[in-house]
Design a protein around this nucleic acid. Structure first.
Lengths: 192, 192
DNA sequence: TGCAACCGAATGAACGTTCAGTTGTCAAAT
DNA sequence: ATTTGACAACTGAACGTTCATTCGGTTGCA
């Protein structure tokens, strides 16, 4: 996939992220996105055939960007170290890109996600990488005999909830909370 | 809060749940809710002053109903038993009420949740009960020294992710997955 | 008889999308 | 070196639809 974007297209993406976080999908009209991006309404339709396509393309773009950040880990680390690293990278990414997190949350819980379900879900490199990371752990007896979905529920679910609590303003997690949580998960999934 | 609803009001609630699960908030017009509930459009406005109020009232109604189901646990069980029971009850409730789960997900990730944030969040009996359950565990040294939000992230986060995966059609969790997961969490949070 | 419950067509605003036109760019032709 | 032409990038007013909300009227019960 091409990650090099024109200025205008990038501005449209950024504006959409910001406005969707604040007002939701249906609360942000195309006209508002255009204004915020310093672009004419029609220009958006030069890049995207519809609002739906804009949303879906933005989703795929963010997913790719996120994956690039999270999985850039050097070889040579132990399994446990990589386990901790991936979790912390993802947490860090969401902390630094709250609009992306909010966009993902809204996207997954909306009917938009249907549009990516069949074809595209198999193109989810992040899911693939997590799957391979899981299988490596199983093969090397690093983690105990559970399914991928138990593994991923513990791994991603806790993280998602923590970020959501932060964003919701309920709680500001500190370093100890984070290390407690990843310890909880690691102790739960590791072998013996 | 009054949980006794008129027939029409209940029908409106049920229709909203069903349609929102299928088409999302902005994808379900008031007229469609009315039709599905065998009611005139105007009737909805007899019960609710606006669509926003309908959504927020429905949220509070569902939250209450869910709490009634999840926390009906007899005294006399051990802490660990209650820990497992609450988790499984919640999972069961969401499995039996997928539209409620989907509604919650959409609600929390949308700007609607802002409408409940300040005043109403303190009226969340479920959060209160979980908090007290947590504090009991701390006081009796059943669980180790972590914050409530680490605790709840592990407890609810995993569950939410598992239900979401189910709903999304990625995976159908079986009994072993469920018991694996709750074991992972319990082992992670229990004392020593 | 009065009032709450209920009805559904009408209203008006909001919004996604279109389109006729303008601007900028760059390579080929002169 | 300058002109030409063609096409992509871009503009924003206008269109048509959709939808939340209103309201004048009807029904049924106490």
């Amino acid at each position: 996939m091409n990650v090099q974007l024109s200025n205008k297209k990038e501005a449209i993406f950024e504006s959409t992220l910001k406005l969707v976080k604040e007002h939701g999908f249906h609360g942000t009209p195309m006209s508002q996105i255009a204004t915020h991006a310093n672009v004419a309404t029609g220009t958006i339709y030069h890049y995207f055939s519809s609002k739906d396509e804009l949303i879906v393309e933005l989703f795929k773009y963010c997913r790719l960007k996120m994956g690039e950040h999270v999985f850039k880990i050097d070889k040579g680390f132990s399994y446990k170290e990589r386990f901790f690293h991936i979790w912390n990278s993802l947490l860090e990414y969401y902390a630094d890109h709250q609009d992306v997190f909010s966009f993902f949350e809204q996207f997954y819980s909306s009917p938009y996600s249907e549009l990516v379900k069949n074809k595209e879900i198999t193109e989810d490199f992040n899911a693939d990488k997590m799957m391979r990371f899981f299988e490596e752990g199983i093969a090397n007896k690093e983690i105990r005999n559970i399914t991928f979905y138990s593994f991923i529920s513990a791994f991603i679910g806790t993280l998602t909830f923590l970020v959501r609590s932060n964003q919701y303003g309920l709680y500001q997690a500190d370093e100890k909370d984070r290390s407690d949580l990843i310890e909880i998960i690691w102790n739960g999934v590791k072998n013996q």
